[in-house]
Design a protein around this nucleic acid. Structure first.
Lengths: 239, 239
DNA sequence: CGTTTGTTTTTTGTTGACAGTTTTCAGGTC
DNA sequence: GACCTGAAAACTGTCAACAAAAAACAAACG
């Protein structure tokens, strides 16, 4: 019996992927600061591999938005641009809006509604008790987004959203300090959005689902950008 | 004096890029049919280069959507899925909608309005006289989209739209036969959309600009999908 | 006759070395 | 002292060969 090719890589990760993952973490930790040059030979030594796999790892990191490669000048850690962060969020918002619309249009199956309801309950609990951390709240919200994106039955859209989630720009900004879901008011707003979105999808109201989904991420954008700015101002003052 | 890094590659293209471009054309021509396997050694010989550059060319083609790479199993020409085509168009539509919105919000400068007006005039002329080919009409429309995307001042969005334009899925479907802008009625519809869009951007009406821009690409989608389907039915019958 | 197992062949992954550019830096000039 | 000039170092691009994995094939088994 051949199982239906579970897409997810069961076998061990490729060498370049492992290197890319590790380098990605090092970049997010701030160990490799934005703008710093990444030399192939250097990382080939630290990971005790040849330059080839490192080279490919750089390309993977470029695709994920961590580094920038200029053909004959090598790779550099991408410098962070706050304006790009806002643009990225706006883009993600319309994409997620489309996902919600198409999920609602499709007439979401009971399975989705059930799972989504469970997530909404968790978000509500998070908002009322403030028991979990901001990043955990963000994780639940992120998983819910993925859930909806999967049910939109639009493979190019799904891939694009997944790629954006792994896109590092705002993760780089994140570092340790969470930028959103710190206050109870904000968590309540988030829970309300998700609750409304669930209702709209359940009712098959595509236009409303799109509107809410989009507003949801735009709210996230408008909360994170100022938080980011103040954090940057702080770190700049500390120097 | 150092000129401000004109982004566009003035220097000669990289070897992998050249190979990727050429292979891309061969795929679009149908010389390399969907599903066919691409062996590194084979193309290394035909291009009289080593396997390294060919390998990188495959990765570039993967990023452009031409091929699919499975880690230890090599590269294959991506098989065409009509459902994906529709999804791709819908996604592109909302992205372009956002671009139009942000361009309008920004208050487009005279330069943009002027260039756009010139393009609209050409589209109108195309619709009335039917002098140019469908693909030329499509090119003008595509350039106009790029124009608006550039003025949206959203770099992530611009990059994403550019990548989607080079994404091959519908180009592969295109081949020689154009799928849209064949009838005068359709060209008139196209010209009217662009004219309205120009007016909305000029007036700074962001919501209207988004609505039109989106409807514009959705119309394109709804015209091309049936054309594609019938074309495929024809080629299937020919076998 | 279909299935499975073991072997051969093909293909990808990785390595180390060489060639061509770019960057760096020292010396000379105005 | 700032700026240009040219050699040296460092780095990326490319290549050919080796190692490991996958695919194809053939023989044995139920």
């Amino acid at each position: 019996m051949d199982q239906p090719a579970t897409q997810g890589p069961i076998c061990a990760l490729t060498l370049p992927q492992q290197i890319a993952d590790h380098l990605g973490h090092r970049i997010m930790n701030g160990e490799l600061p934005p703008g710093s040059r990444l030399k192939e030979e250097e990382f080939a030594e630290t990971y005790t591999v040849s330059r080839g796999p490192v080279r490919e790892a750089f390309r993977l990191l470029e695709r994920r938005g961590f580094v920038e490669i200029v053909p004959r000048h090598g790779a550099r850690v991408r410098v962070f641009d706050p304006a790009d962060l806002a643009g990225l969020f706006s883009t993600r918002a319309v994409l997620f809006g489309l996902a919600a619309r198409q999920a609602a249009e499709r007439g979401a199956p009971a399975e989705l509604i059930e799972q989504l309801a469970s997530q909404v309950a968790r978000l509500r609990h998070s908002a009322e008790t403030m028991e979990i951390s901001p990043s955990e709240h963000a994780t639940i919200a992120g998983d819910s987004q993925h859930l909806i994106a999967r049910f939109a039955a639009n493979r190019p859209l799904l891939k694009m959203l997944e790629e954006m989630t792994s896109r590092a720009l705002w993760r780089m900004a994140w570092r340790d300090t969470p930028l959103d879901f710190k206050t109870q008011a904000r968590r309540r707003q988030s829970a309300r959005f998700w609750s409304d979105l669930l209702k709209a999808i359940e009712a098959g109201d595509a236009a409303e689902a799109e509107r809410i989904a989009r507003a949801l991420l735009e709210a996230s954008r408008d909360h994170m950008i100022p938080a980011m700015a103040s954090r940057r101002a702080l770190s700049a003052a500390a120097e």
